Simulated assay, not measured.
Amino acid sequence: MLETSFLTAPEHVAIIMDGNGRWAKQRGLPRTMGHRRAVETVRQTVRTAGDLGIKYLTLFAFSSENWRRPEAEVSDLLGLLKAFIRSDLAELHRQNVRIRVIGDRVNLRSDILKLLLEAEETTRANTALTLVIAFNYGSRDEIARAMMSLAKDVEEGRLRAHDITPALIEARLDTAGIPDPDLIIRTSGEERLSNFLLWQAAYSEFVFLPEFWPDFSRELFLSALEKFALRDRRFGGLSAQAAAVNT
């Protein structure tokens, strides 16, 4: 469970894992070494989330824009994903971790798609931490696919346009059934969402860290959670203190 110093425990933490290439460049290493070091950071972060009682952890593993990177780097990233699933799936399963993959699966390589489906199916009944892997994911694309799905239902008479609600839209998103992130963390000093969970982040808290992802430690994770615990989450309403004054 969470350390007693935390006032509020987030149910869902999402992380934009940024800075692998710059971490490697600072050390005179090829970018691929930054990605390889990042995999160990993923393992450590998943363990920490489980230890702290967080129920959902979403990791931005590979965006739909990452295909634009050099072919050799993309190949290495895909190889690391495959290696992670092959080597860690059994251990995650033993830890009662459920894996959920979000992102566009159309035209994915058959070997990658097979591994992702295997990871989801193997861990489907697990009930501890849900590890959400955003792979080939872009939030604008996700929203567009949801809109096309609803539009098709309208065209075919299963739905009326004026009956579309935010709840119906959420049910067509890749994250259907997953609570919105309470906290979004981004490493590397960048302070933007980069097409990540745009709909779901409407009321998320943000913590931006200067450290690159390979240096993201348990201590930095705890520090981000401490910052989150001090936030006054009003969701458009009044804070508890202000509400008391106005009663």
Rank of each mutant, 00 (worst) to 15 (best):
E3V: 13
S5N: 12
L7H: 04
A9T: 13
A9N: 05
P10V: 01
E11V: 13
H12W: 07
H12C: 01
V13E: 03
M17C: 07
M17D: 04
G19L: 06
R22E: 04
R22T: 09
R22I: 06
A24D: 05
A24P: 02
K25L: 11
G28C: 07
L29S: 06
P30M: 09
M33E: 15
H35Q: 06
V39H: 01
Q44P: 00
R47V: 04
R47Y: 00
A49L: 04
G50K: 00
G53H: 03
I54V: 15
L57M: 02
S63G: 10
E65Q: 10
R68M: 12
R69T: 09
P70G: 13
E71S: 15
A72N: 11
A72F: 06
E73P: 05
L77V: 08
L77G: 06
L78E: 09
G79Q: 01
L80A: 03
L80I: 14
K82C: 08
A83W: 12
R86F: 02
S87M: 13
D88T: 11
L89G: 01
H93Y: 13
R94Y: 05
R94D: 15
D104N: 15
V106M: 07
N107Q: 14
L108H: 02
R109G: 14
L116E: 05
L117P: 00
E118D: 12
T123C: 01
A125G: 11
A125E: 13
N126T: 09
T127H: 10
T127G: 10
L131D: 07
L131I: 08
S139E: 14
S139L: 05
I143H: 02
R145H: 07
M147T: 14
D153W: 09
E155S: 15
G157D: 04
R158Q: 14
R160I: 13
R160D: 15
I164C: 05
I164W: 02
I164N: 04
T165G: 00
L168D: 04
I169N: 02
I169Q: 08
R172S: 01
L173I: 11
D174N: 14
T175G: 06
P179I: 10
D182V: 08
I185R: 00
R186N: 11
R186L: 04
R186H: 05
S188R: 08
S188M: 06
E191P: 01
S194Y: 05
S194T: 10
N195E: 09
N195L: 08
F196C: 04
Q200E: 08
Q200H: 08
A202T: 08
Y203R: 11
E205Y: 08
V207Q: 03
F208T: 09
L209V: 06
P214A: 09
P214Q: 05
F216I: 03
F216N: 01
R218C: 00
F221A: 00
A224E: 10
L225D: 06
L225H: 07
L225K: 02
K227F: 03
R233H: 12
R234A: 06
F235L: 15
A243M: 14
A244D: 13
N246I: 15
